[in-house]
Protein backbone atom coordinates (compact mmCIF):
# COMPACT_ATOMS: atom_id res chain seq x y z
CA UNK A 1 0.00 0.00 0.00
CA UNK A 2 1.28 3.46 -0.89
CA UNK A 3 -0.84 6.34 0.34
CA UNK A 4 2.07 8.52 -0.62
CA UNK A 5 1.94 7.42 -4.24
CA UNK A 6 -1.84 7.88 -4.43
CA UNK A 7 -1.38 11.39 -3.07
CA UNK A 8 1.46 11.98 -5.54
CA UNK A 9 -0.85 11.03 -8.40
CA UNK A 10 -3.60 13.39 -7.17
CA UNK A 11 -1.08 16.18 -6.57
CA UNK A 12 0.69 15.98 -9.93
CA UNK A 13 -2.52 15.65 -11.94
CA UNK A 14 -4.35 18.43 -10.10
CA UNK A 15 -1.65 21.00 -10.86
CA UNK A 16 -1.57 20.33 -14.61
CA UNK A 17 -4.56 21.51 -16.68
CA UNK A 18 -3.88 19.01 -19.48
CA UNK A 19 -3.62 16.09 -17.06
CA UNK A 20 -6.86 17.11 -15.33
CA UNK A 21 -8.68 16.78 -18.66
CA UNK A 22 -6.85 13.59 -19.61
CA UNK A 23 -7.73 11.97 -16.27
CA UNK A 24 -11.36 13.05 -16.60
CA UNK A 25 -11.66 11.63 -20.11
CA UNK A 26 -9.55 8.46 -19.78
CA UNK A 27 -9.03 7.54 -16.14
CA UNK A 28 -7.72 3.98 -16.61
CA UNK A 29 -5.37 4.99 -19.42
CA UNK A 30 -4.09 7.99 -17.50
CA UNK A 31 -3.43 5.95 -14.36
CA UNK A 32 -1.58 3.27 -16.35
CA UNK A 33 0.54 5.87 -18.17
CA UNK A 34 1.24 7.77 -14.97
CA UNK A 35 2.29 4.68 -13.03
CA UNK A 36 4.62 3.61 -15.84
CA UNK A 37 6.17 7.00 -16.61
CA UNK A 38 5.67 9.36 -13.69
CA UNK A 39 5.27 7.44 -10.43
CA UNK A 40 9.00 7.16 -9.83
CA UNK A 41 9.96 10.67 -10.96
CA UNK A 42 11.32 12.67 -8.02
CA UNK A 43 9.65 15.99 -8.59
CA UNK A 44 12.63 18.31 -8.28
CA UNK A 45 15.19 15.99 -9.87
CA UNK A 46 16.20 15.23 -13.44
CA UNK A 47 14.70 12.14 -15.08
CA UNK A 48 17.89 10.08 -14.72
CA UNK A 49 17.65 10.31 -10.93
CA UNK A 50 14.43 8.35 -10.65
CA UNK A 51 13.25 6.24 -7.77
CA UNK A 52 13.03 2.52 -8.46
CA UNK A 53 10.44 1.17 -6.07
CA UNK A 54 7.11 3.02 -6.23
CA UNK A 55 3.99 1.21 -7.47
CA UNK A 56 0.26 1.17 -6.72
CA UNK A 57 -1.36 -1.86 -5.21
CA UNK A 58 -4.38 -3.31 -6.99
CA UNK A 59 -6.96 -1.50 -4.82
CA UNK A 60 -5.26 1.86 -5.29
CA UNK A 61 -4.97 1.41 -9.02
CA UNK A 62 -8.64 0.40 -9.26
CA UNK A 63 -9.83 3.31 -7.11
CA UNK A 64 -7.95 5.84 -9.20
CA UNK A 65 -8.94 4.21 -12.50
CA UNK A 66 -12.57 4.13 -11.35
CA UNK A 67 -12.72 7.77 -10.20
CA UNK A 68 -13.82 6.15 -6.95
CA UNK A 69 -13.39 8.97 -4.45
CA UNK A 70 -15.19 7.16 -1.59
CA UNK A 71 -12.65 4.35 -1.94
CA UNK A 72 -9.80 6.86 -1.98
CA UNK A 73 -11.15 8.43 1.21
CA UNK A 74 -11.44 4.99 2.83
CA UNK A 75 -7.83 4.15 2.06
CA UNK A 76 -6.55 7.40 3.58
CA UNK A 77 -5.77 9.44 0.47
CA UNK A 78 -5.42 13.09 1.48
CA UNK A 79 -9.00 14.41 1.33
CA UNK A 80 -7.98 17.91 0.25
CA UNK A 81 -6.12 16.58 -2.78
CA UNK A 82 -8.97 14.27 -3.75
CA UNK A 83 -11.63 16.94 -3.32
CA UNK A 84 -9.74 19.60 -5.25
CA UNK A 85 -9.05 17.37 -8.23
CA UNK A 86 -12.55 15.91 -8.37
CA UNK A 87 -14.12 19.38 -8.19
CA UNK A 88 -11.89 20.33 -11.13
CA UNK A 89 -13.15 17.37 -13.13
CA UNK A 90 -16.80 17.18 -12.23
CA UNK A 91 -18.15 20.40 -10.74
CA UNK A 92 -18.80 21.56 -14.31
CA UNK A 93 -21.40 18.81 -14.75
CA UNK A 94 -23.51 20.05 -11.82
CA UNK A 95 -25.31 23.19 -10.68
CA UNK A 96 -23.90 25.32 -7.85
CA UNK A 97 -22.60 23.20 -5.02
CA UNK A 98 -24.47 20.06 -6.10
CA UNK A 99 -21.29 18.13 -6.82
CA UNK A 100 -19.75 19.00 -3.46
CA UNK A 101 -22.97 17.95 -1.69
CA UNK A 102 -23.21 14.70 -3.65
CA UNK A 103 -19.57 14.07 -2.71
CA UNK A 104 -20.49 14.51 0.97
CA UNK A 105 -23.51 12.21 0.60
CA UNK A 106 -21.41 9.47 -0.96
CA UNK A 107 -19.15 9.62 2.08
CA UNK A 108 -21.98 9.78 4.61
CA UNK A 109 -21.33 6.21 5.79
CA UNK A 110 -17.91 7.22 7.11
CA UNK A 111 -17.70 7.55 10.89
CA UNK A 112 -15.10 9.15 13.14
CA UNK A 113 -12.28 8.45 13.39
CA UNK A 114 -11.75 8.80 9.67
CA UNK A 115 -9.03 6.74 7.99
CA UNK A 116 -5.53 7.89 8.85
CA UNK A 117 -4.06 10.18 6.18
CA UNK A 118 -0.48 10.06 7.45
CA UNK A 119 1.86 8.95 4.68
Amino acid sequence: MSKYLVDKFLFTVDRDPELVERYRDDPAGTVAWWEAEEANRILNCVAAERSTWLAFDDAERAALAGHDYPALFAMGAHPFLTLTLFIAMFERDHEGLDFQLEYARRLSHMQLPYPDIAT
Binding site: P79, F80, A104, M110
Partner: peptide
Protein backbone atom coordinates in the same frame (compact mmCIF):
# COMPACT_ATOMS: atom_id res chain seq x y z
CA UNK B 1 -14.30 19.67 6.68
CA UNK B 2 -12.74 19.20 3.25
CA UNK B 3 -13.33 16.08 1.19
CA UNK B 4 -15.40 14.42 3.91
CA UNK B 5 -19.07 13.77 4.71
CA UNK B 6 -19.57 16.99 6.68
CA UNK B 7 -18.33 19.37 3.98
CA UNK B 8 -20.31 22.26 2.48
CA UNK B 9 -23.10 22.20 5.04
Amino acid sequence: ELGGPRQFG
